[in-house]
Design a protein around this nucleic acid. Sequence first.
DNA 1: ACACCTTTGAAGTCG
DNA 2: CGACTTCAAAGGTGT
Length: 372
Amino acid sequence: MPQLSSGGGDDLGANDEMISFKDEGEQEEKIQENAFTERDLADLKSSLVNESEINQSPNAAAVRRAHQGEQRDFQEKHREHLDGVSKHQDGGMYKTPAYPGYPFLMLPDPYLPNSSVSPSSNKVSVVQQSHGMHPLSSLLPYSNEHFSPSPPHLPTDMSQKTGVHRHQSQDLSGYYSLPPGGVGQITSPMGWQSQPVYPGLSPCGFRQPYSSNLPGSSSYSRFPHSLMLGPSGMHPTGIPHPAIVPHTGKQEHDQYDRGMYVKQQVEVKREKEPKKPVIKKPLNAFMLYMKEMRAKVIAECTLKESAAINQILGRRWHALTREEQAKYYELARKERQLHMQLYPTWSARDNYGKKKRRKREKLQDSNTDNSL
DNA sequence: ACACCTTTGAAGTCG
DNA sequence: CGACTTCAAAGGTGT
């Protein structure tokens, strides 16, 4: 498991099984397509192999359905793909320009092992613009300069655990023009608004039947300026902060993904006294990947159960190359940095006990039992 | 209404 | 320092 945060020693460049895909150009494109198909087939195989173990879970039926759906889908896709490959010259299922609207990945990847990564090598199938705007759009404002100081393969400031200080305005100001006073007027070139930055995009040739699923508000920057937020976590501009959930007793996971504007405005009216907003944890690499890929998996597998989807995504995550994963690790790292910058006093501890209260109570019960 | 499921990774806690 | 726990997203499902 590649851990970029593990001190930079991770030899992301030391690609073992994927090294054979390093060819450039069209050849690589074809090969990557094949790789994708093979990966999916591997997934398919593993799903078949793992079926017995999956059956043991309560979600077995759902998962089985998921796998069957995936299997069916993959088989069809594979068939199509084979046809496509034979016809392929100007792009098959995964055309090169499939990600024209994903600026972040269009950026050079100096933090990747092979900074020579060509645009085509960025054709991470996972990174498609299925949303109105990329969920990680908060990171779009990051400039290349931010990446540059880091070693080609790993940033030196990866040591959040060891050395990252909460205040890194110096660091951040490199790509966020921070006022002396702190995180102020961070202006994003993309804006946080989910403008149809990539209008009509249908990358990867994937159908996008999720318009209802992907409202315009789905991808605001996760961490805009908290300091500018109003009492309800609302940015003065009217843009809510994705990491801040108005405390409504129960945390709304989808607060920022589904009509949160309206929702929050209604709540603002309803709630007269400002309640303490809940600042959520920054998403890790896998969470970012899941967020990105969920819709795709749903489309492919006609699944809805998140548990099953997450299983698939977990397998696909492992099937990713290190380079592909590295992008998400880097995004996650930046999310954490930004989170730290925006909420210097926040700690993950703050949200402890808000979800698994029962477990804790259970533990406490057992403790008290022991003490008795 | 709310916990659970399911995944990985980060961060917190504890011994 | 290692092992363990909790939370982050998501939405169907079960109580």
